[in-house]
């Protein structure tokens, strides 16, 4: 199993940036934030993102980390058929891994009529 870990550092650079408010059309200012994502594996590249402070959300941060993980997985030749990056946990997981006992039970038995309607086979 692949285990890619990293550290992230978010900093307000203090640099003022101007932008136009999409809703009001007003000229506004914010400060520039940077996020440096440093993998614990030194063979993988460090990635830096920059974004205005007023739009930097947890969702953006997670999205950046997800993109890093996708890139690092490619560099490490993680087989995309067998593995995928889980968006929620930000880990590399086996595709098709079923842990829920109820779902497993469903896989072990033929589907009931409610899932696949019975039909007659053509005869020869």
């Amino acid at each position: 199993m692949y285990n890619i870990t990293w550290q992230k550092e978010i900093e307000d650079t203090g640099e003022v940036v101007r932008y136009v408010d999409d809703d009001t059309g007003e000229d506004k200012t914010s400060t520039l934030m940077t996020m440096v994502v440093t993998p614990d594996n030194p063979d993988l590249p460090v990635r830096t993102y920059a974004l205005r402070k007023n739009i930097l959300t947890d969702e953006h941060i997670k999205g950046f980390e997800y993109n890093c993980l996708l890139e690092w997985a490619t560099i490490l030749n993680v087989d995309p058929v067998k593995y995928k990056v889980d968006e929620e946990t930000l880990t590399i997981v086996l595709r098709g891994k079923v842990d829920d006992p109820q779902k497993i039970e469903k896989w072990l038995k033929p589907n009931g009529m409610q899932d696949v309607e019975a039909k007659d086979a053509e005869t020869l």
Binding site: L94, W107, N111, V116, A118
Partner: peptide, 18 residues
């Protein structure tokens, strides 16, 4: 369990699923 391929499923007479 790991199950990551797609199947086409047919249920014949509620006796055998292919």
């Amino acid at each position: 369990m790991i199950f990551n391929m797609d199947f086409t499923v047919e249920n014949f007479e509620n006796k055998i699923q292919i």
